[in-house]
Measured scan of single mutants.
Amino acid sequence: AQASVVANQLIPINTYLTLVMMRSEVVTPVGIPAEDIPRLVSMQVNRAVPLGTTLMPDMVKGYA
């Protein structure tokens, strides 16, 4: 199964992502692939992302 990117903490709206904020986990539904974690660093979330939430492409500015 493919691992997705999951929030490792509460990520406030407009926060620039860093490695410590994200982890990879096999979840349903599938979100942003874990292999894209390096690409996500320094990208901004466009909403608050609670701890344990799967990151979806529409949550990250400029990802989709």
Rank of each mutant, 00 (worst) to 15 (best):
A1W: 04
A1D: 15
A1T: 15
Q2W: 06
Q2C: 04
Q2R: 03
Q2I: 09
A3D: 14
A3G: 14
A3K: 07
A3E: 15
A3N: 14
S4F: 02
S4E: 00
V5H: 01
V5P: 01
V5L: 04
V5T: 12
V5G: 02
V6W: 02
V6P: 01
V6E: 02
V6L: 12
V6G: 01
A7K: 00
A7I: 07
A7Y: 01
A7W: 02
A7R: 01
A7V: 08
A7H: 01
A7L: 03
N8E: 10
N8T: 11
N8P: 02
N8K: 12
Q9F: 10
Q9L: 10
Q9M: 15
L10A: 12
L10Y: 15
L10D: 15
I11F: 02
I11A: 01
P12R: 05
P12A: 13
P12H: 08
P12C: 03
P12F: 08
P12E: 13
I13Q: 13
I13P: 13
I13W: 07
I13E: 15
I13Y: 10
I13C: 04
N14C: 03
T15C: 03
T15Q: 13
Y16W: 10
Y16L: 13
Y16K: 10
L17M: 13
L17A: 00
L17Y: 00
T18K: 03
L19M: 11
V20G: 15
V20M: 09
V20D: 14
V20S: 15
M21Y: 13
M21I: 04
M21P: 00
M21D: 12
M21E: 03
M21S: 09
M22Y: 02
M22K: 00
M22S: 00
M22T: 03
R23A: 09
R23I: 08
R23D: 06
S24W: 10
S24Q: 09
S24R: 05
S24N: 13
E25V: 04
E25N: 07
E25D: 14
V26F: 13
V26I: 07
V26T: 09
V26L: 14
V26H: 07
V26N: 11
V26D: 15
V26A: 14
V26W: 04
V27E: 02
V27W: 02
V27T: 13
V27L: 12
T28S: 11
T28G: 06
T28L: 10
P29R: 03
P29H: 07
P29T: 11
P29L: 10
P29E: 09
P29V: 05
V30P: 10
V30M: 07
V30N: 09
G31R: 03
G31S: 03
G31I: 02
I32L: 08
I32G: 01
I32F: 03
I32A: 03
P33I: 06
P33T: 07
P33M: 10
P33Y: 06
P33E: 07
A34Q: 12
A34S: 15
A34L: 06
A34V: 12
E35A: 08
E35W: 07
E35I: 05
E35C: 03
D36F: 13
D36T: 07
D36Q: 09
D36M: 09
D36V: 06
D36W: 09
D36R: 05
I37A: 11
I37Y: 02
I37G: 05
I37W: 02
P38M: 06
P38W: 06
R39S: 07
R39C: 10
L40V: 10
L40I: 11
L40R: 00
L40Y: 02
L40C: 03
V41K: 05
V41C: 03
V41F: 07
S42T: 08
S42C: 05
S42G: 10
S42I: 05
M43S: 06
M43G: 07
Q44T: 07
Q44I: 14
Q44W: 04
V45H: 00
V45N: 07
V45A: 06
V45E: 00
V45T: 13
V45L: 06
V45I: 13
N46F: 06
N46T: 14
N46W: 05
N46V: 09
N46S: 13
R47P: 02
A48C: 03
A48H: 06
V49K: 00
V49P: 01
V49H: 02
V49M: 05
V49N: 01
P50A: 15
P50D: 12
L51F: 12
L51S: 12
L51V: 08
L51C: 03
G52Q: 11
G52P: 00
G52V: 02
G52F: 14
T53Y: 14
T53P: 01
T54V: 10
T54D: 01
T54Q: 05
T54M: 07
T54W: 02
T54A: 09
T54S: 06
L55I: 13
L55H: 01
L55G: 00
M56Y: 07
M56I: 11
M56T: 09
M56F: 11
P57F: 06
P57V: 06
P57S: 05
D58I: 12
D58G: 13
D58T: 14
D58K: 05
M59Q: 07
M59R: 03
V60M: 06
V60A: 02
V60Y: 00
V60R: 00
V60C: 02
K61I: 14
K61H: 10
K61C: 13
K61A: 15
K61N: 12
G62I: 04
G62H: 10
G62N: 11
Y63W: 13
Y63E: 04
Y63K: 04
Y63R: 04
Y63L: 05
Y63Q: 08
